[in-house]
Design a protein around this nucleic acid. Structure first.
Length: 424
RNA sequence: CGGGGCAUAGCGCAGCCUGGUAGCGCACCUGCUUUGGGAGCAGGUGGUCGCAGGUUCAAAUCCUGCUGCCCCGACCA
């Protein structure tokens, strides 16, 4: 891709209404533009990053044996009435009517739909265990959307649902999914923690949250300094009858080992053991050997769009985003210095551009007739992991200037090392 | 929903108090000069001043109502 054709959408100034760094940078780097409160357009660069996140999630989900499906965003409200959640969810559920005056809602989650689907799809216990997942747009009419895509009303989510014959099976499916989550967040290069959590409106028994550590996080997490004990402070607080969560700092850990330390986290994943809650209420009955059973269900969510913001919270400097390589929108940028001055420079860029493409390196060639500083700044704010600088200065030497985003200055490398470095 | 703030060009803002031709910087377009860290000069494009009503000869500006957006709180797989 050449920048002369790419809709970059970078901006020099911070938007006045963005408070946290990831929101500011997502707009300045041209990842998103706001449409309405909590509703965003994803521009080309942002969409590419989002797709990288999706691809990692998809590959680990597939690897775990889960099967991808796609469920509708629009759901009949009758299913929510049947499950009893229409009142429980309240106004966060966006309800509307079609031309026949039938009541529908925009799906904030899909337990009802998937359970209903499986009523016809799963005809025998021999088909269990099964885990189905989708990556899809959700809508929750949040009381107060904020911080860009961090807490938006419309957002991209991976949600998975497991069905097992019994509790032991559910434990297995749950731990398989937990392992898949660990792989996913590792590959996403996030600094995260797994904590015990409140299962909230989804219901069920055990539940754990995956939190990206960041000062801008909206959740308070408590960790023991001597053991692996970790819990959402909100939940611990409920157990301790509503005291100030911050007062937990320094208190003895409930597991008796060490004292509690507090940190803020961004919830990017949540896994639940639902049990029979939905299978019973929606009457998902499956034939087993000697009697019908209600399968033990689990559900597993990951906020894909939120991960983009969370990654930026952990990876930025005063110049812009510092994407970890697996998330970067491109592998490398070629900055062409003063394109109009010297055809040889352009020819060299063209040659490199083709070579990168042959090596399956996703390359962005900044061929714009702009001053070098403008290009450097643009490539830095969007967080290109590598930039090759091509200008008259180094053209003759036969070496290449390769600048890593995290480094102050470029280093001179041979052609062979250039490709090797970028692919590493 | 309670409290606070904002709404004027794609972005950032001034003008409003004291009514009288809608402005500045950045971005964008054209030309010339420049060229290794956000260039200079000259010319240019782009606005129902959030919406509706009112006062007035005249409203971005004064009055009333509404809407949208942001922040704090409550809430939140």
């Amino acid at each position: 891709m050449k920048t002369s054709r790419l809709i970059l959408g970078t901006q020099r100034e911070n938007p006045s209404d963005a408070e946290i760094i990831s929101h500011q940078l997502m707009i300045r780097a041209g990842l998103i533009r706001q449409v309405s409160s909590g509703i965003y357009n994803w521009l080309p660069i942002g969409k590419k990053v989002l797709q990288k996140v999706e691809a990692i999630i998809r590959s680990e989900m597939d690897n775990s044996g889960a099967q991808e499906i796609l469920m509708p965003m629009v759901q009949p409200a009758s299913l929510w009435e049947e499950s009893g959640r229409i009142d429980q969810y309240g106004q966060e559920l966006l309800v509307f009517f079609d031309r026949h005056e039938n009541k529908f809602c925009l799906g904030p989650t899909h337990e009802e739909i998937i359970t209903d689907l499986c009523k016809n799809l799963i005809t025998s216990y021999k088909q269990l265990p099964i885990t189905l997942y989708q990556i899809q747009t959700k809508f929750r009419d949040e009381i107060r959307p904020r911080f860009g895509v961090m807490r938006s009303r419309e957002f991209l989510m991976k949600d998975a649902y497991s069905f097992d014959l019994n509790k032991e099976g559910l434990d297995r499916s749950y731990s398989i999914m937990k392992e898949a989550y660990t792989n996913i967040f590792d590959r996403l290069c996030l600094d995260y923690r797994v904590v015990k959590a409140d299962s909230g409106a989804i219901g069920g028994s055990d539940s754990e949250e995956f939190h990206v550590l960041a000062d801008s996080g909206e959740d308070l997490l408590a960790f023991s300094d001597k053991s692996s004990y970790a819990i959402n402070a909100e939940l611990l607080n409920e157990l301790n009858e509503g005291q100030d969560p911050y007062s937990l700092d320094g208190k003895p850990s409930p597991d008796g080992k060490g004292v509690l330390k507090l940190k803020k986290g961004i919830e990017v994943g949540h896994i639940f053991k639902l049990g029979k809650k939905y299978s019973e209420v929606l009457n998902l009955r499956i034939q087993a050997e000697d009697q019908d059973i209600f399968p033990e269900m689990g559900c597993y969510g990951i906020g894909a769009s939120r991960i983009v913001a969370a990654s930026i919270e952990q990876n930025h400097d005063d110049k812009g985003i510092l994407w970890p390589k697996p998330l970067a929108p491109f592998d490398v940028a070629i900055v062409e210095v003063n394109p109009k001055n010297n055809v040889k420079v352009t020819n060299k860029c063209s040659e490199l551009y083709e070579q990168f493409k042959e090596h399956k390196i996703d390359v962005l060639w900044d061929d714009r007739d702009k001053r070098p500083g403008v290009k450097f700044n643009d490539m830095e704010v969007i967080g290109m992991p590598y930039t090759v600088i091509v200008g008259e200065r180094t053209l003759k030497t036969g070496e290449y200037e390769l600048k890593e985003r995290v480094d102050e200055k470029p280093k001179l490398v041979s052609h062979q090392d250039l490709v090797a470095n970028i692919k590493n």
